[in-house]
Design a protein around this nucleic acid. Structure first.
Length: 577
RNA sequence: CGGGGUGUGGCGCAGUUGGUAGCGCGCCGCGUUUGGGACGCGGAGGUCGUCCGUUCAAGUCGGAUCACCCCGACCA
Protein backbone atom coordinates (compact mmCIF):
# COMPACT_ATOMS: atom_id res chain seq x y z
CA UNK A 1 0.00 0.00 0.00
CA UNK A 2 2.76 2.39 0.99
CA UNK A 3 6.00 1.94 -0.90
CA UNK A 4 8.41 2.54 1.93
CA UNK A 5 11.86 3.76 0.99
CA UNK A 6 14.32 1.26 2.39
CA UNK A 7 17.39 3.37 2.82
CA UNK A 8 17.97 7.04 3.23
CA UNK A 9 20.87 9.36 3.79
CA UNK A 10 20.42 11.84 6.57
CA UNK A 11 21.49 14.65 4.23
CA UNK A 12 18.43 13.84 2.10
CA UNK A 13 16.06 14.22 5.02
CA UNK A 14 14.69 17.73 5.38
CA UNK A 15 14.00 17.51 9.09
CA UNK A 16 16.52 18.42 11.76
CA UNK A 17 16.50 17.81 15.47
CA UNK A 18 15.96 20.48 18.06
CA UNK A 19 17.89 20.73 21.27
CA UNK A 20 14.97 22.29 23.05
CA UNK A 21 11.33 21.36 22.80
CA UNK A 22 8.80 24.13 22.10
CA UNK A 23 7.67 25.72 25.32
CA UNK A 24 3.97 25.17 24.66
CA UNK A 25 4.19 21.39 24.80
CA UNK A 26 4.09 19.61 28.11
CA UNK A 27 3.31 16.05 27.06
CA UNK A 28 6.48 14.00 26.74
CA UNK A 29 5.35 12.38 23.49
CA UNK A 30 4.81 15.74 21.82
CA UNK A 31 8.06 17.21 23.10
CA UNK A 32 10.13 14.32 21.82
CA UNK A 33 8.26 13.84 18.56
CA UNK A 34 8.70 17.53 17.76
CA UNK A 35 12.34 17.66 18.88
CA UNK A 36 13.18 14.61 16.79
CA UNK A 37 11.30 15.93 13.77
CA UNK A 38 8.50 13.36 13.58
CA UNK A 39 5.56 15.73 13.77
CA UNK A 40 4.70 19.36 13.25
CA UNK A 41 2.04 21.01 15.33
CA UNK A 42 -0.32 22.92 13.10
CA UNK A 43 -2.61 24.02 15.90
CA UNK A 44 -3.92 22.69 19.18
CA UNK A 45 -4.69 19.01 18.75
CA UNK A 46 -3.78 19.01 15.07
CA UNK A 47 -0.44 17.56 14.00
CA UNK A 48 1.20 16.97 10.63
CA UNK A 49 3.34 13.87 10.20
CA UNK A 50 6.80 14.49 8.78
CA UNK A 51 8.83 11.86 6.93
CA UNK A 52 10.05 10.04 10.04
CA UNK A 53 6.68 10.26 11.75
CA UNK A 54 4.85 9.08 8.68
CA UNK A 55 7.05 6.00 8.53
CA UNK A 56 6.01 5.09 12.06
CA UNK A 57 2.37 5.72 11.22
CA UNK A 58 2.64 3.51 8.16
CA UNK A 59 4.29 0.74 10.18
CA UNK A 60 1.45 0.80 12.67
CA UNK A 61 -1.11 0.85 9.88
CA UNK A 62 0.53 -2.12 8.22
CA UNK A 63 0.40 -4.20 11.39
CA UNK A 64 -3.22 -3.30 11.97
CA UNK A 65 -4.07 -3.94 8.32
CA UNK A 66 -2.37 -7.33 8.29
CA UNK A 67 -4.24 -8.48 11.37
CA UNK A 68 -7.60 -7.20 10.14
CA UNK A 69 -7.02 -8.84 6.77
CA UNK A 70 -6.08 -12.06 8.53
CA UNK A 71 -9.56 -12.40 10.04
CA UNK A 72 -11.21 -11.55 6.73
CA UNK A 73 -11.50 -7.79 7.03
CA UNK A 74 -12.12 -6.02 3.73
CA UNK A 75 -10.56 -2.60 3.47
CA UNK A 76 -12.34 0.36 1.97
CA UNK A 77 -12.15 4.10 2.27
CA UNK A 78 -15.16 6.11 3.38
CA UNK A 79 -15.62 9.85 3.11
CA UNK A 80 -14.75 12.71 5.43
CA UNK A 81 -17.77 14.77 4.36
CA UNK A 82 -20.93 13.27 5.76
CA UNK A 83 -24.55 13.98 4.83
CA UNK A 84 -26.89 15.09 7.56
CA UNK A 85 -29.83 12.92 6.45
CA UNK A 86 -28.01 9.68 7.16
CA UNK A 87 -27.38 10.63 10.75
CA UNK A 88 -30.86 11.99 11.28
CA UNK A 89 -32.18 8.51 10.61
CA UNK A 90 -30.29 7.22 13.64
CA UNK A 91 -30.95 10.33 15.70
CA UNK A 92 -27.29 11.25 16.02
CA UNK A 93 -27.22 14.50 14.03
CA UNK A 94 -28.50 16.72 16.82
CA UNK A 95 -25.73 18.55 18.70
CA UNK A 96 -27.47 17.62 21.91
CA UNK A 97 -26.80 13.95 21.12
CA UNK A 98 -23.28 14.20 19.70
CA UNK A 99 -21.64 17.41 20.84
CA UNK A 100 -18.14 17.15 19.40
CA UNK A 101 -18.96 17.09 15.73
CA UNK A 102 -17.35 19.53 13.32
CA UNK A 103 -20.09 20.68 10.99
CA UNK A 104 -19.98 22.74 7.86
CA UNK A 105 -22.19 23.49 4.91
CA UNK A 106 -22.38 23.52 1.15
CA UNK A 107 -22.77 26.73 -0.84
CA UNK A 108 -26.46 25.93 -1.15
CA UNK A 109 -26.79 25.78 2.61
CA UNK A 110 -26.98 22.00 2.98
CA UNK A 111 -25.49 20.97 6.31
CA UNK A 112 -22.62 18.48 6.41
CA UNK A 113 -20.68 16.72 9.10
CA UNK A 114 -16.94 16.17 9.09
CA UNK A 115 -16.09 12.48 9.58
CA UNK A 116 -16.49 11.68 13.25
CA UNK A 117 -17.50 8.03 13.04
CA UNK A 118 -18.81 5.87 10.23
CA UNK A 119 -21.49 3.46 11.40
CA UNK A 120 -24.17 5.10 9.26
CA UNK A 121 -22.03 5.45 6.11
CA UNK A 122 -20.88 1.82 6.19
CA UNK A 123 -24.47 0.62 6.52
CA UNK A 124 -25.51 2.92 3.71
CA UNK A 125 -22.71 1.61 1.52
CA UNK A 126 -23.74 -2.00 2.13
CA UNK A 127 -27.45 -1.56 1.37
CA UNK A 128 -27.15 -2.44 -2.32
CA UNK A 129 -24.90 -5.43 -1.59
CA UNK A 130 -26.51 -7.19 1.35
CA UNK A 131 -29.68 -9.02 0.39
CA UNK A 132 -29.49 -12.58 1.56
CA UNK A 133 -27.98 -14.78 4.23
CA UNK A 134 -25.41 -15.71 1.57
CA UNK A 135 -23.94 -12.19 1.76
CA UNK A 136 -23.11 -12.49 5.45
CA UNK A 137 -21.20 -12.43 7.70
CA UNK A 138 -18.57 -9.82 6.85
CA UNK A 139 -16.06 -7.41 8.26
CA UNK A 140 -15.35 -4.08 6.53
CA UNK A 141 -12.78 -1.58 7.72
CA UNK A 142 -10.97 1.58 6.82
CA UNK A 143 -8.01 3.55 8.07
CA UNK A 144 -8.54 7.26 7.85
CA UNK A 145 -8.77 10.63 9.46
CA UNK A 146 -11.38 11.33 12.08
CA UNK A 147 -12.39 14.80 13.22
CA UNK A 148 -13.67 15.43 16.70
CA UNK A 149 -14.17 18.84 18.21
CA UNK A 150 -12.79 18.07 21.63
CA UNK A 151 -13.46 20.73 24.22
CA UNK A 152 -9.81 20.62 25.01
CA UNK A 153 -7.09 18.92 23.06
CA UNK A 154 -4.22 17.72 25.19
CA UNK A 155 -1.48 15.22 25.75
CA UNK A 156 0.20 15.80 22.38
CA UNK A 157 -0.96 13.33 19.77
CA UNK A 158 -2.89 11.30 22.33
CA UNK A 159 -5.96 13.49 22.23
CA UNK A 160 -6.26 15.42 18.99
CA UNK A 161 -9.06 17.08 17.11
CA UNK A 162 -7.89 15.43 13.93
CA UNK A 163 -6.44 11.95 14.20
CA UNK A 164 -5.92 8.68 12.40
CA UNK A 165 -8.08 5.75 13.22
CA UNK A 166 -8.79 2.27 11.99
CA UNK A 167 -12.47 1.52 12.24
CA UNK A 168 -13.91 -1.85 11.39
CA UNK A 169 -17.55 -2.92 11.31
CA UNK A 170 -18.91 -6.45 11.48
CA UNK A 171 -22.21 -7.70 10.14
CA UNK A 172 -23.69 -10.94 11.41
CA UNK A 173 -26.88 -12.90 10.83
CA UNK A 174 -27.65 -13.46 14.48
CA UNK A 175 -26.32 -12.88 17.96
CA UNK A 176 -24.32 -16.11 18.08
CA UNK A 177 -22.60 -15.31 14.85
CA UNK A 178 -21.96 -11.78 16.07
CA UNK A 179 -20.39 -13.06 19.26
CA UNK A 180 -18.00 -15.18 17.23
CA UNK A 181 -17.03 -12.25 15.04
CA UNK A 182 -16.61 -10.07 18.10
CA UNK A 183 -14.26 -12.47 19.83
CA UNK A 184 -12.33 -13.12 16.64
CA UNK A 185 -11.74 -9.40 16.30
CA UNK A 186 -10.79 -9.22 19.98
CA UNK A 187 -8.17 -11.92 19.39
CA UNK A 188 -6.83 -9.94 16.43
CA UNK A 189 -6.52 -6.90 18.70
CA UNK A 190 -4.37 -8.87 21.10
CA UNK A 191 -2.05 -9.78 18.20
CA UNK A 192 -1.93 -6.15 17.08
CA UNK A 193 -0.86 -4.88 20.50
CA UNK A 194 1.66 -7.69 20.87
CA UNK A 195 3.24 -6.79 17.55
CA UNK A 196 3.26 -3.11 18.49
CA UNK A 197 5.29 -4.01 21.56
CA UNK A 198 2.69 -2.92 24.11
CA UNK A 199 0.87 -6.23 24.54
CA UNK A 200 2.26 -6.82 28.02
CA UNK A 201 0.62 -3.67 29.35
CA UNK A 202 -2.55 -3.48 27.29
CA UNK A 203 -5.68 -4.99 28.79
CA UNK A 204 -9.25 -5.56 27.74
CA UNK A 205 -11.46 -3.61 30.10
CA UNK A 206 -15.25 -3.33 30.37
CA UNK A 207 -16.51 0.16 29.66
CA UNK A 208 -19.61 2.13 28.84
CA UNK A 209 -20.88 2.22 25.28
CA UNK A 210 -21.04 6.00 25.08
CA UNK A 211 -23.12 7.40 22.30
CA UNK A 212 -22.47 4.37 20.10
CA UNK A 213 -24.59 1.86 21.91
CA UNK A 214 -26.65 1.33 25.03
CA UNK A 215 -24.55 -1.76 25.65
CA UNK A 216 -21.29 -2.00 27.44
CA UNK A 217 -18.18 -1.94 25.33
CA UNK A 218 -14.70 -3.35 25.65
CA UNK A 219 -11.73 -1.06 25.67
CA UNK A 220 -8.09 -1.89 25.08
CA UNK A 221 -6.33 0.12 27.71
CA UNK A 222 -2.58 0.59 27.87
CA UNK A 223 -1.21 1.25 31.33
CA UNK A 224 0.58 4.60 31.49
CA UNK A 225 0.77 7.41 34.01
CA UNK A 226 -0.19 9.89 31.31
CA UNK A 227 -3.55 8.17 30.88
CA UNK A 228 -6.84 9.93 31.38
CA UNK A 229 -8.67 6.75 32.36
CA UNK A 230 -8.57 4.88 35.62
CA UNK A 231 -8.80 1.11 35.48
CA UNK A 232 -10.07 -1.05 38.31
CA UNK A 233 -8.43 -4.44 38.35
CA UNK A 234 -9.29 -7.45 40.45
CA UNK A 235 -5.83 -8.69 41.45
CA UNK A 236 -4.81 -12.04 40.11
CA UNK A 237 -7.58 -12.12 37.52
CA UNK A 238 -8.10 -10.77 34.03
CA UNK A 239 -11.02 -8.68 35.24
CA UNK A 240 -10.41 -5.05 34.32
CA UNK A 241 -12.98 -2.29 34.40
CA UNK A 242 -13.01 1.29 33.32
CA UNK A 243 -13.86 3.33 36.39
CA UNK A 244 -17.12 4.42 34.78
CA UNK A 245 -18.54 0.89 34.94
CA UNK A 246 -16.59 -0.77 37.76
CA UNK A 247 -18.98 -2.42 40.18
CA UNK A 248 -18.23 -1.31 43.66
CA UNK A 249 -18.78 -2.29 47.21
CA UNK A 250 -17.79 0.27 49.78
CA UNK A 251 -15.56 -0.87 52.62
CA UNK A 252 -17.70 -1.52 55.71
CA UNK A 253 -17.72 1.19 58.33
CA UNK A 254 -16.70 0.74 61.94
CA UNK A 255 -18.76 1.72 64.97
CA UNK A 256 -22.18 1.57 63.38
CA UNK A 257 -23.85 -0.53 66.09
CA UNK A 258 -24.18 2.17 68.75
CA UNK A 259 -27.45 3.30 70.23
CA UNK A 260 -29.80 5.32 68.05
CA UNK A 261 -29.60 8.94 69.01
CA UNK A 262 -32.50 11.36 68.68
CA UNK A 263 -33.05 12.82 65.21
CA UNK A 264 -32.06 16.47 65.08
CA UNK A 265 -32.09 19.27 62.55
CA UNK A 266 -28.97 21.40 62.64
CA UNK A 267 -28.70 24.77 60.97
CA UNK A 268 -25.64 25.09 58.77
CA UNK A 269 -26.21 28.15 56.69
CA UNK A 270 -24.73 27.95 53.22
CA UNK A 271 -22.87 24.75 54.06
CA UNK A 272 -22.92 22.74 50.87
CA UNK A 273 -20.78 19.81 49.93
CA UNK A 274 -19.93 16.84 52.09
CA UNK A 275 -16.40 17.95 52.92
CA UNK A 276 -17.43 21.26 54.37
CA UNK A 277 -20.44 19.71 56.03
CA UNK A 278 -18.49 16.95 57.77
CA UNK A 279 -16.07 19.53 59.11
CA UNK A 280 -18.90 21.75 60.29
CA UNK A 281 -20.81 18.96 62.02
CA UNK A 282 -17.61 17.40 63.35
CA UNK A 283 -18.55 13.98 62.05
CA UNK A 284 -16.62 11.68 59.70
CA UNK A 285 -17.39 12.30 56.03
CA UNK A 286 -18.63 8.70 55.79
CA UNK A 287 -21.56 9.64 58.05
CA UNK A 288 -22.79 12.27 55.61
CA UNK A 289 -25.06 11.53 52.68
CA UNK A 290 -25.06 13.03 49.23
CA UNK A 291 -28.52 13.11 47.69
CA UNK A 292 -28.99 14.15 44.08
CA UNK A 293 -32.24 14.59 42.20
CA UNK A 294 -32.54 13.43 38.63
CA UNK A 295 -35.31 13.57 36.08
CA UNK A 296 -35.72 10.53 33.81
CA UNK A 297 -37.07 10.47 30.23
CA UNK A 298 -40.70 10.17 31.24
CA UNK A 299 -40.48 12.98 33.80
CA UNK A 300 -40.10 10.66 36.76
CA UNK A 301 -38.04 12.23 39.55
CA UNK A 302 -35.32 10.09 41.08
CA UNK A 303 -33.64 10.79 44.41
CA UNK A 304 -30.29 9.06 44.45
CA UNK A 305 -28.23 8.84 47.61
CA UNK A 306 -24.64 7.79 48.26
CA UNK A 307 -22.40 7.87 51.29
CA UNK A 308 -20.35 11.05 51.66
CA UNK A 309 -17.09 10.83 49.75
CA UNK A 310 -18.66 8.99 46.84
CA UNK A 311 -20.08 10.41 43.64
CA UNK A 312 -23.10 9.17 41.81
CA UNK A 313 -22.42 7.17 38.68
CA UNK A 314 -25.05 8.28 36.22
CA UNK A 315 -24.35 5.36 33.92
CA UNK A 316 -25.19 2.86 36.66
CA UNK A 317 -28.15 4.89 37.83
CA UNK A 318 -29.54 5.16 34.32
CA UNK A 319 -29.43 1.41 33.86
CA UNK A 320 -31.15 0.76 37.19
CA UNK A 321 -33.86 3.29 36.50
CA UNK A 322 -34.24 1.92 33.00
CA UNK A 323 -34.08 5.36 31.43
CA UNK A 324 -32.39 6.29 28.18
CA UNK A 325 -31.59 9.73 29.46
CA UNK A 326 -31.16 11.02 32.93
CA UNK A 327 -30.75 14.67 33.69
CA UNK A 328 -29.84 16.40 36.86
CA UNK A 329 -32.96 18.16 38.12
CA UNK A 330 -32.96 21.90 37.57
CA UNK A 331 -33.23 24.41 40.40
CA UNK A 332 -36.99 24.83 40.09
CA UNK A 333 -37.59 21.09 40.28
CA UNK A 334 -35.32 20.71 43.30
CA UNK A 335 -37.16 23.52 45.06
CA UNK A 336 -40.55 22.01 44.22
CA UNK A 337 -39.66 18.49 45.32
CA UNK A 338 -37.63 19.22 48.43
CA UNK A 339 -39.04 22.57 49.42
CA UNK A 340 -35.48 23.81 49.80
CA UNK A 341 -32.79 25.49 47.80
CA UNK A 342 -30.18 23.34 46.07
CA UNK A 343 -27.75 21.88 48.57
CA UNK A 344 -30.07 20.60 51.28
CA UNK A 345 -31.74 17.63 49.63
CA UNK A 346 -32.23 14.44 51.61
CA UNK A 347 -34.55 11.44 51.59
CA UNK A 348 -36.71 12.54 54.51
CA UNK A 349 -40.34 13.41 53.78
CA UNK A 350 -40.03 13.40 50.02
CA UNK A 351 -43.27 13.38 48.03
CA UNK A 352 -44.40 9.80 47.39
CA UNK A 353 -44.00 10.06 43.61
CA UNK A 354 -40.22 10.45 43.96
CA UNK A 355 -38.40 7.21 43.32
CA UNK A 356 -35.66 6.65 45.88
CA UNK A 357 -32.51 4.76 44.96
CA UNK A 358 -29.98 4.31 47.73
CA UNK A 359 -26.44 3.08 47.31
CA UNK A 360 -25.26 0.07 49.28
CA UNK A 361 -22.63 2.27 50.93
CA UNK A 362 -25.48 3.71 53.02
CA UNK A 363 -26.89 0.40 54.17
CA UNK A 364 -24.93 -0.32 57.33
CA UNK A 365 -24.91 3.09 58.94
CA UNK A 366 -26.55 4.34 62.09
CA UNK A 367 -26.91 7.93 63.24
CA UNK A 368 -26.00 9.37 59.85
CA UNK A 369 -26.50 12.79 58.31
CA UNK A 370 -28.53 13.84 55.33
CA UNK A 371 -30.02 17.01 53.92
CA UNK A 372 -33.16 18.03 55.83
CA UNK A 373 -35.04 19.28 52.77
CA UNK A 374 -35.13 22.72 54.35
CA UNK A 375 -32.86 25.50 53.24
CA UNK A 376 -29.74 25.69 55.44
CA UNK A 377 -30.82 22.66 57.48
CA UNK A 378 -29.09 19.31 57.87
CA UNK A 379 -30.60 16.31 59.63
CA UNK A 380 -28.30 14.34 61.91
CA UNK A 381 -28.68 11.04 63.70
CA UNK A 382 -30.92 9.72 60.97
CA UNK A 383 -31.65 6.00 61.23
CA UNK A 384 -33.21 3.50 58.86
CA UNK A 385 -36.55 2.11 59.99
CA UNK A 386 -37.12 4.85 62.52
CA UNK A 387 -36.83 8.08 60.52
CA UNK A 388 -37.31 6.69 57.07
CA UNK A 389 -38.20 3.24 55.79
CA UNK A 390 -35.34 0.84 55.20
CA UNK A 391 -35.21 0.51 51.40
CA UNK A 392 -36.27 -2.90 50.11
CA UNK A 393 -33.08 -3.02 48.16
CA UNK A 394 -29.80 -1.14 48.16
CA UNK A 395 -28.13 -0.61 44.79
CA UNK A 396 -24.69 0.15 43.47
CA UNK A 397 -24.98 3.62 41.97
CA UNK A 398 -21.62 5.11 42.89
CA UNK A 399 -18.44 5.78 41.02
CA UNK A 400 -15.98 3.20 42.27
CA UNK A 401 -13.11 4.52 44.34
CA UNK A 402 -9.71 3.22 45.23
CA UNK A 403 -9.96 0.72 48.13
CA UNK A 404 -13.46 -0.35 47.06
CA UNK A 405 -14.16 -4.04 46.70
CA UNK A 406 -15.23 -6.02 43.70
CA UNK A 407 -18.66 -7.28 44.84
CA UNK A 408 -18.31 -10.53 42.95
CA UNK A 409 -15.06 -11.69 44.53
CA UNK A 410 -14.88 -9.47 47.60
CA UNK A 411 -11.32 -8.53 46.64
CA UNK A 412 -10.02 -5.01 46.96
CA UNK A 413 -9.43 -3.46 43.55
CA UNK A 414 -6.08 -2.21 42.41
CA UNK A 415 -6.32 0.95 40.31
CA UNK A 416 -4.11 2.01 37.42
CA UNK A 417 -3.94 4.95 35.05
CA UNK A 418 -4.27 4.04 31.40
CA UNK A 419 -4.76 5.29 27.86
CA UNK A 420 -7.44 3.86 25.61
CA UNK A 421 -5.60 2.38 22.64
CA UNK A 422 -8.64 0.77 21.06
CA UNK A 423 -12.19 -0.24 21.66
CA UNK A 424 -14.79 -2.68 20.44
CA UNK A 425 -18.54 -2.27 20.72
CA UNK A 426 -21.48 -4.59 20.23
CA UNK A 427 -24.00 -2.49 18.31
CA UNK A 428 -26.84 -5.01 18.06
CA UNK A 429 -29.07 -3.94 15.17
CA UNK A 430 -29.34 -0.29 16.15
CA UNK A 431 -27.83 1.11 12.96
CA UNK A 432 -28.81 -1.59 10.48
CA UNK A 433 -32.46 -1.44 11.52
CA UNK A 434 -32.56 2.35 11.54
CA UNK A 435 -31.15 2.52 8.03
CA UNK A 436 -33.17 -0.40 6.72
CA UNK A 437 -30.45 -2.93 6.16
CA UNK A 438 -31.88 -6.44 6.52
CA UNK A 439 -31.22 -9.85 5.01
CA UNK A 440 -33.45 -12.67 3.86
CA UNK A 441 -32.91 -16.14 5.32
CA UNK A 442 -33.21 -19.51 3.53
CA UNK A 443 -36.98 -19.20 3.61
CA UNK A 444 -37.04 -15.66 2.35
CA UNK A 445 -37.84 -14.28 5.80
CA UNK A 446 -36.47 -10.87 6.71
CA UNK A 447 -34.08 -10.54 9.67
CA UNK A 448 -32.13 -7.86 11.46
CA UNK A 449 -28.39 -7.70 11.04
CA UNK A 450 -26.25 -7.65 14.19
CA UNK A 451 -23.35 -5.24 14.01
CA UNK A 452 -20.16 -4.62 15.90
CA UNK A 453 -17.59 -1.88 15.57
CA UNK A 454 -13.90 -1.99 16.30
CA UNK A 455 -11.59 1.01 16.59
CA UNK A 456 -7.86 1.46 16.98
CA UNK A 457 -6.38 4.93 17.24
CA UNK A 458 -3.41 4.81 14.89
CA UNK A 459 -1.90 8.19 15.74
CA UNK A 460 -2.73 7.82 19.41
CA UNK A 461 -1.00 4.46 19.47
CA UNK A 462 2.11 6.13 18.08
CA UNK A 463 1.90 8.61 20.94
CA UNK A 464 1.46 5.83 23.49
CA UNK A 465 4.50 3.97 22.20
CA UNK A 466 6.57 7.16 22.13
CA UNK A 467 5.49 8.03 25.64
CA UNK A 468 5.97 4.60 27.19
CA UNK A 469 9.40 3.68 25.87
CA UNK A 470 11.16 7.04 25.85
CA UNK A 471 14.17 7.55 28.13
CA UNK A 472 16.25 10.58 29.07
CA UNK A 473 18.03 10.49 25.71
CA UNK A 474 14.92 10.47 23.59
CA UNK A 475 12.56 8.15 21.78
CA UNK A 476 12.95 4.37 21.82
CA UNK A 477 10.99 2.59 19.09
CA UNK A 478 10.30 -1.11 19.10
CA UNK A 479 11.65 -2.80 15.93
CA UNK A 480 8.15 -3.29 14.59
CA UNK A 481 7.31 0.42 14.30
CA UNK A 482 10.71 2.13 14.15
CA UNK A 483 11.06 4.59 11.27
CA UNK A 484 14.27 2.76 10.32
CA UNK A 485 15.73 -0.41 11.79
CA UNK A 486 19.32 0.75 11.62
CA UNK A 487 21.12 4.02 12.04
CA UNK A 488 24.44 3.90 10.25
CA UNK A 489 27.09 6.34 11.44
CA UNK A 490 30.45 7.08 9.90
CA UNK A 491 32.98 8.69 12.20
CA UNK A 492 35.11 11.16 10.29
CA UNK A 493 35.36 11.58 6.55
CA UNK A 494 38.40 9.42 5.93
CA UNK A 495 38.21 7.96 2.44
CA UNK A 496 38.39 4.38 3.69
CA UNK A 497 35.69 4.98 6.23
CA UNK A 498 33.35 6.47 3.65
CA UNK A 499 34.04 3.62 1.23
CA UNK A 500 33.45 0.98 3.92
CA UNK A 501 30.23 2.69 5.02
CA UNK A 502 28.93 3.06 1.48
CA UNK A 503 29.52 -0.63 0.82
CA UNK A 504 27.72 -1.62 4.00
CA UNK A 505 24.86 0.78 3.24
CA UNK A 506 24.34 -0.93 -0.09
CA UNK A 507 24.61 -4.42 1.39
CA UNK A 508 21.97 -3.59 3.98
CA UNK A 509 19.69 -2.37 1.21
CA UNK A 510 20.18 -5.66 -0.66
CA UNK A 511 19.10 -7.51 2.48
CA UNK A 512 15.95 -5.40 2.66
CA UNK A 513 16.96 -3.71 5.91
CA UNK A 514 15.79 -0.15 6.49
CA UNK A 515 18.76 2.11 7.14
CA UNK A 516 19.17 5.75 7.87
CA UNK A 517 22.78 6.70 7.17
CA UNK A 518 23.84 9.78 9.05
CA UNK A 519 26.24 10.92 6.35
CA UNK A 520 26.51 14.50 7.60
CA UNK A 521 29.92 15.97 8.07
CA UNK A 522 29.27 16.26 11.77
CA UNK A 523 31.10 15.29 14.90
CA UNK A 524 30.41 11.83 16.28
CA UNK A 525 28.84 13.10 19.48
CA UNK A 526 26.18 14.93 17.56
CA UNK A 527 25.40 11.88 15.45
CA UNK A 528 25.14 9.64 18.51
CA UNK A 529 22.89 12.09 20.30
CA UNK A 530 20.62 12.33 17.25
CA UNK A 531 20.47 8.57 16.77
CA UNK A 532 19.37 8.27 20.39
CA UNK A 533 16.85 11.10 20.15
CA UNK A 534 15.26 9.71 17.01
CA UNK A 535 15.15 6.35 18.72
CA UNK A 536 16.31 4.01 15.97
CA UNK A 537 16.67 0.58 17.60
CA UNK A 538 20.01 -0.49 16.11
CA UNK A 539 23.11 1.64 15.73
CA UNK A 540 26.08 0.73 13.57
CA UNK A 541 29.25 2.82 13.74
CA UNK A 542 32.14 2.78 11.32
CA UNK A 543 35.37 4.58 12.20
CA UNK A 544 39.02 4.44 11.14
CA UNK A 545 39.56 1.99 14.03
CA UNK A 546 36.85 -0.41 12.92
CA UNK A 547 37.87 -0.17 9.26
CA UNK A 548 41.39 -1.19 10.25
CA UNK A 549 39.95 -4.37 11.71
CA UNK A 550 37.49 -4.79 8.86
CA UNK A 551 34.72 -4.65 11.41
CA UNK A 552 31.79 -2.54 12.58
CA UNK A 553 30.56 -1.52 15.95
CA UNK A 554 27.02 -2.43 16.95
CA UNK A 555 24.85 -1.09 19.75
CA UNK A 556 21.17 -1.56 20.55
CA UNK A 557 19.29 1.59 21.57
CA UNK A 558 18.07 -0.07 24.75
CA UNK A 559 21.44 -1.48 25.87
CA UNK A 560 24.75 0.07 26.86
CA UNK A 561 26.84 -2.79 25.56
CA UNK A 562 28.83 -2.24 22.36
CA UNK A 563 29.93 -5.22 20.27
CA UNK A 564 32.43 -5.45 17.45
CA UNK A 565 31.15 -7.51 14.54
CA UNK A 566 32.31 -8.39 11.08
CA UNK A 567 30.02 -7.09 8.34
CA UNK A 568 28.72 -10.62 7.78
CA UNK A 569 27.95 -11.13 11.45
CA UNK A 570 26.16 -7.81 11.45
CA UNK A 571 24.07 -8.67 8.41
CA UNK A 572 23.15 -11.98 9.98
CA UNK A 573 22.13 -10.30 13.21
CA UNK A 574 20.05 -7.65 11.49
CA UNK A 575 18.32 -10.09 9.17
CA UNK A 576 16.94 -11.86 12.23
CA UNK A 577 15.15 -8.86 13.70
C1' C B 1 -17.72 27.45 28.77
C1' G B 2 -15.15 29.50 33.77
C1' G B 3 -10.37 30.62 36.01
C1' G B 4 -5.03 31.26 35.56
C1' G B 5 -0.72 31.91 32.43
C1' U B 6 2.05 33.01 27.85
C1' G B 7 2.76 35.40 22.81
C1' U B 8 9.85 39.20 21.03
C1' G B 9 14.36 35.81 14.31
C1' G B 10 13.47 28.42 12.98
C1' C B 11 13.80 26.74 18.73
C1' G B 12 14.76 28.40 23.93
C1' C B 13 14.87 33.09 26.37
C1' A B 14 16.32 38.57 28.13
C1' G B 15 14.63 43.47 27.43
C1' U B 16 15.11 48.20 33.97
C1' U B 17 11.59 54.44 35.20
C1' G B 18 8.50 54.49 27.39
C1' G B 19 13.82 56.79 23.48
C1' U B 20 12.90 52.27 17.14
C1' A B 21 15.66 45.35 19.94
C1' G B 22 19.72 41.60 22.35
C1' C B 23 21.67 36.54 24.16
C1' G B 24 22.14 31.00 23.62
C1' C B 25 21.07 27.10 20.11
C1' G B 26 20.37 26.57 14.95
C1' C B 27 21.74 28.78 9.87
C1' C B 28 25.72 30.84 5.95
C1' G B 29 31.29 31.71 4.84
C1' C B 30 36.54 30.77 6.10
C1' G B 31 39.92 28.21 9.17
C1' U B 32 41.28 24.76 13.08
C1' U B 33 38.85 20.32 14.67
C1' U B 34 36.47 15.05 14.64
C1' G B 35 34.33 8.61 19.64
C1' G B 36 28.90 11.56 23.19
C1' G B 37 25.54 17.78 20.91
C1' A B 38 33.69 21.47 19.31
C1' C B 39 36.40 26.27 18.86
C1' G B 40 37.92 31.05 16.54
C1' C B 41 36.83 34.97 13.13
C1' G B 42 33.20 37.07 9.87
C1' G B 43 27.92 37.17 8.35
C1' A B 44 22.43 36.63 7.38
C1' G B 45 17.83 36.66 9.79
C1' G B 46 12.79 40.09 13.85
C1' U B 47 7.45 46.15 11.24
C1' C B 48 8.18 42.44 19.19
C1' G B 49 0.57 37.76 17.73
C1' U B 50 -3.13 41.35 15.51
C1' C B 51 -5.98 45.88 15.64
C1' C B 52 -7.25 50.48 18.01
C1' G B 53 -5.73 54.14 21.39
C1' U B 54 -2.38 57.37 24.85
C1' U B 55 2.36 59.94 23.75
C1' C B 56 7.03 64.12 20.43
C1' A B 57 8.24 58.83 20.93
C1' A B 58 5.31 52.15 22.50
C1' G B 59 8.26 45.46 22.75
C1' U B 60 7.34 48.46 27.25
C1' C B 61 1.22 52.14 29.09
C1' G B 62 -4.53 51.38 28.15
C1' G B 63 -8.45 48.75 25.47
C1' A B 64 -10.16 45.07 22.19
C1' U B 65 -9.22 40.73 19.63
C1' C B 66 -6.75 36.16 18.13
C1' A B 67 -3.68 32.04 19.24
C1' C B 68 -1.30 28.68 22.52
C1' C B 69 -0.60 26.21 27.44
C1' C B 70 -2.44 24.64 32.32
C1' C B 71 -6.55 23.75 35.86
C1' G B 72 -11.72 23.18 36.29
C1' A B 73 -16.70 22.35 34.18
C1' C B 74 -23.30 20.98 36.61
C1' C B 75 -21.78 17.62 42.22
C1' A B 76 -27.01 18.56 46.28
Amino acid sequence: MYAIILIMRRTQLFTKTLRQAPADETAENAKLLIRAGFVHKEMAGVYAYLPLGLRVIEKIKTIVREEMNAIGGQELQMTALQPRELFEQTNRWDDAVVDNWFKTELKNGARLGLGLTHEEPIVDILIPYIDSYRDLPLYAYQIGTKFRNELRAKSGILRGREFLMKDMYSFARNQTEHDELYEKAAAAYVRVYDRLGIGDRTFRAKADGGYFTENYSDEYQTLSPIGEDTLFHVPGTDKWFNQEVALSQAPRLENQDGEEKPLENVEGKGIIGVNELAKFLEIPMEQTTKTMLYVADGGEVIAAAVRGGYDINEIKLRKIVGAKNLKLADEATVRKITGAEIGYAGLLNLPPEVRIIVDESCSDRTNFEMGANQTNMHAINVNWGRDLPLPEKFYDIKIARESDLDPETGQVYETKKSVEAGNIFPLESKYSDALDLYYADENGQRHSIIMGCYGIGISRTMGIIAEIFADEKGLVWPDSVAPFQVCLINVGTDENVVKFTTDLYEKLQEKGIEVLWDDRDARPGEKFADADLIGIPHRVVISPKTVERGAVEYKARTLDEITILSPDELLKKLTCI
